[in-house]
């Protein structure tokens, strides 16, 4: 589904990612872990097509196509979803309008008829139940006045509505209490299928108790320095990142 080869990315001349290699197949869940500043969020944003980054080398293939050639909205329409670490507020734009526009853009792209207001509200009701989204929230403007936890729930709610092929969850666990964490994880698990894949970007192992990964990668200074199964996450939880830093010849 997704193949990243030797990806190098810099921002304002400073190199952030330094030769990333990653293969993701349908049905898989990959966790990307690493200390602060290791480049996790950069990777997530580059995949979604954010413009602030300069790709200096490497290639990314998504479903057989060159991802770098695609505009961010086309990536989204082709099934890439980013759950934002910091979802932005858009004052005055009702959630319902925003979501309906998004859903219908996806449908248009697939050659499907746009949903009417009635049809959309029905779909929305179903998906809301999945993440226990409060109706009061969907009546507000996009993310306006949402708490940190509500914003994250709202991201997963949108993921449920858009039914992506490849979901990238960027620090979705940050700022969540344990109950919200469970709800969000439950939503993600419910959406899981053999046809779609998920990248979970996280600093802590906590979320991985609920969303169990097939592969865990450790990102350090812009490189994947270790890849293993889910047991690696537990080891990191126990020992921290220092031993990996040492292994890679870093001063700790």
């Amino acid at each position: 589904m997704l193949s990243i080869k030797n990806l190098c990315v810099s921002i304002e001349g400073k190199e952030i990612l330094n030769g990333i290699n990653l293969e993701i197949k349908p049905g898989e869940i990959h966790a990307i872990m690493g200390p602060n500043g290791s480049g996790k969020s950069t990777l997530a944003n580059v995949l979604a097509g954010r413009e602030d980054y300069e790709i200096t080398a490497g290639e990314i293939t998504y479903m057989g196509e060159d991802l770098m050639e695609m505009a961010p909205e086309d990536r989204a329409r082709k099934g890439i979803f980013l759950s934002f670490q910091y979802p932005v507020e858009i004052p005055g734009v009702p959630m319902v309008n925003f979501l309906k526009t998004a859903v219908n853009e996806h449908r248009k792209f697939k050659g499907e008829k746009p949903l009417t207001a009635g049809e959309f509200l029905k779909v929305m009701r179903e998906k809301k139940a999945l993440v226990e989204m409060d109706t009061e929230l969907t009546n507000r403007s996009v993310n306006e006045g949402f708490s940190g936890g509500e914003k994250k729930k709202n991201e997963i709610f949108q993921m449920a509505l858009l039914e992506p092929k490849l979901s990238i969850l960027d620090e979705t666990d940050s700022g969540l209490d344990i109950d919200a964490l469970r709800t969000v994880a439950h939503g993600v698990n419910a959406l899981r299928s053999k046809d779609n894949a998920t990248i979970v970007v996280t600093h802590y192992q906590r979320l991985l108790d609920y969303i169990v990964p097939d592969h865990v990668h450790v990102l350090l200074k812009g490189r994947i320095v270790k890849s293993a199964g889910k047991e690696l996450a537990l080891e990191l939880e126990e020992k921290g990142y220092d031993w990996i830093k040492k292994e890679n010849g870093e001063q700790v």
């Binding site: 097509g49 505009a71 909205e73 734009v93 309008n97 998004a102 853009e105």
Partner: peptide
Amino acid sequence: GEDQIFYCNQRGISTEDAIGMIVNGYAR
């Protein structure tokens, strides 16, 4: 905000539509 536009883009909404949406929200 570039952030607002990118957020819309990431949900499949083109930049031009995103601007229309954001401006109308502002003027609502």
